[in-house]
Computed example of a mutant assay.
Amino acid sequence: MKRKNFILSLVFMLTLSLVLAACGGKDDAGESKDSGDKGGKKQFLNLVTGGTGGTYYPLGGSFANIITENTNAEATAQSSGASAENMESIKTGDADIAFTQTDIASYATEGKLMFEGKKVTNVKALASLYPETVQIVTTAKSGIKSVEDLKGKSVSVGAPGSGTYANAEQILEIHGMTMKDIKAQNLSFDESTGGIQDGTIDAAFITAGTPTGAVEGLAATTDVVIVPIAEDKIDALIEKYPYYAKDEVPAGTYKIKEPVKTVAVQAMLVVRDDLEEDLVYDITKAIFENLDKVTHAKGKIIKVENALNGVGIDVHPGAQKYFDEKGVKK
């Protein structure tokens, strides 16, 4: 009997040891990973970008990698409906970091236009990045040479409530037109260029950094035309909507022979306002000090000295701390 009890006790102790070891292993593997010299647990962050045919998506992938490799956080980039949808995702807590346009961020925090009655109050700016060029894309065979020529044509204007939609609406307005003057189609960038290629639409508004992947794909098989905006109309647009700036699509982009005058807003990153100051400082520092790891061409024009350009909402204290160190001012 004593021997039997001894064996049972031994089996119990061995079993308990294995259970404890398994629990310990689960803690090590199941808990967030340490961040190297910073110590502590990894925080998981959702970074929302835009459609796969735009500029936000590839940039977001690079930024997520930089954040994961250089901070005490692990970021995952996710495609989305871009600016307006991203602000909604910040509001609901489904996103921690988001790409948006400076004009859309202002609409959201002020509760205007597509955000009327649904103001976003939990968002702060991280940084302005680069100009988002309004590109009115068509083909040589369409015969469209001016904004006025869009009248009666089938034109993609982006999703209702998107930044692109707002840009299209305002540019048409300055030309004495409304959405009723065109056959408006609510398509993504990829769908827009696909529609132009197969002839189901005539033109598309695409607001994104140049070169835009979807338009590059179209230019590979089609003679792309970027419709210019006349100088006086640009001036009138900026006077009414000051967040626009003069811009141009450079010669050589999409194989065009001459630069094309247009306008731009700024692309920016925003964050939830409840992210810790130290974390946002680390994220801001990581991005601006590792821009050489950004594979998209836009990485070359993102500069810390321009990080507060066009920012119309409050800057997160963590990001502001980094900009203060670098002497960056609005």
Rank of each mutant, 00 (worst) to 15 (best):
A245V: 12
N86A: 08
L279A: 08
T207V: 13
S156T: 00
Q197K: 12
D282F: 07
F323H: 03
K41I: 06
E74P: 00
T295S: 13
E116R: 15
I182A: 01
I313Q: 08
A230R: 03
A105W: 03
T15H: 08
K261Q: 14
N306S: 09
G61V: 07
G25H: 12
K183C: 04
G24L: 05
M114C: 12
K240W: 13
V294A: 12
M1Q: 11
P228T: 01
G25L: 13
N46C: 06
A108M: 09
A98D: 00
K255R: 11
E116W: 14
S106Y: 06
L187W: 00
T200I: 12
V328Q: 06
S35A: 12
T133W: 04
I67F: 00
V270M: 07
D274A: 01
K145D: 11
Q170C: 09
T178S: 15
D292S: 14
F6S: 14
D96G: 11
V280H: 00
L126E: 06
M13T: 15
A251W: 02
H175I: 06
V263Y: 03
P131T: 02
A73Q: 02
N72K: 10
V271K: 04
L45M: 05
L129G: 02
T222F: 01
Y281S: 04
D235T: 15
N309V: 12
D278E: 07
G111K: 08
K119D: 08
G51I: 07
L129P: 01
E110Y: 10
L275E: 09
H316T: 01
Y281I: 07
A73P: 02
N70S: 07
G327M: 00
G194T: 12
K255C: 09
A77S: 11
V224L: 06
K300R: 13
N65R: 15
D292L: 09
A214R: 08
L14G: 14
P317I: 13
G195A: 05
F6W: 13
E258M: 02
I206F: 11
N72R: 10
V225A: 01
K233E: 07
M13N: 14
G195Q: 03
A230D: 09
K118S: 15
D223L: 03
K321M: 02
P160S: 02
A84P: 05
K329T: 13
V155D: 00
M114Q: 14
V224A: 05
T178V: 05
I67V: 14
F115A: 04
K118F: 13
E231D: 15
I171T: 01
D235Y: 10
I90Q: 04
L279R: 04
I90N: 05
A264K: 10
G158Y: 09
M114W: 12
P228K: 05
V294K: 06
A22Y: 09
L20D: 11
N290T: 09
E116N: 15
G111W: 12
D314W: 03
S142V: 06
A84I: 02
P259S: 08
T138F: 09
E305Q: 10
P160I: 03
D96E: 10
V260L: 04
M114F: 14
G161A: 05
A264D: 08
I301D: 10
A159G: 07
P58Q: 08
